[in-house]
Design a protein around this nucleic acid. Sequence first.
DNA 1: ATTGTATTGCAACTGTGTTGCGTTTACACT
DNA 2: AGTGTAAACGCAACACAGTTGCAATACAAT
Lengths: 135, 135
Amino acid sequence: MQDKGLRITKVRRALIQLFSEHSIPYTANQIEKKLFAIGILVNKTTIYRELQFLSQNGYITEVYLHSNEISYESAELKHHHHLVCESCGNVDDVINCLVSELNREIYQKKKFKIRTHTLEFYGTCAKCAHIKHIK
Amino acid sequence: MQDKGLRITKVRRALIQLFSEHSIPYTANQIEKKLFAIGILVNKTTIYRELQFLSQNGYITEVYLHSNEISYESAELKHHHHLVCESCGNVDDVINCLVSELNREIYQKKKFKIRTHTLEFYGTCAKCAHIKHIK
DNA sequence: ATTGTATTGCAACTGTGTTGCGTTTACACT
DNA sequence: AGTGTAAACGCAACACAGTTGCAATACAAT
């Protein structure tokens, strides 16, 4: 990492550790709270810049789960998609991906070259379905 | 539509017509410009409220194509997905959907009940690939 | 024409994310 | 260890999508 003349600061180290330990996507705000909880108080500008930095250098990738907030997750995760519970907001992963087969078909039909795609599922997780049942 | 005590105003009529004539998703800003172009000058608050209204009443549906802006498209369109060109921003449709088969599988494995899903492709459209080639 | 209420415009606000700039800090090199 | 330099930082101010409260207006039914 220092190959490119990049420095290892406490924020950068903490973020890399966070993303390597958890496969969940985080927003800038969630990260700010996570860092604060372990005693690291950082300006939000720094967090945004650090997320941009890590994203541009291929350490993390952007995920669009909600309309107006960008989430980030480790770039080292296997290609996968998300189960987003509309009740509690919890996010889980699905590894299966049938979509890759579509690439050739879409290029033949539309001459559109797919670089990447997003596939997100919205619904109710097991926990919330259970809670609703109890009520 | 008037059944529910709802009124037909010029903005509402124009929006319903816009969405019925075009199958493309529009953002609030794009709609503001479209309306202005046909001589309808509306406050942005009205547009946001009208989009909320049409969405809640099942006339249009939300689409998340870009990180920080909500797009809307007619709710009467067949279930489909989008080809978003990362070069010119143009949006095209794909009707095929292999994903529906996943619903049962995901419920069996994860007990997650899928209400809906999004599947968006990002890449380069034929036109832009051609332009790049010429340059 | 009158009236009740849905709809509108305006202004002020919220929240996410960005930019400019001066200061601090990590790290390489003496 | 001391020092120079560029990366990283904090702060303040900003940009932009979207929301809210409230008073004014417009629709449609009587």
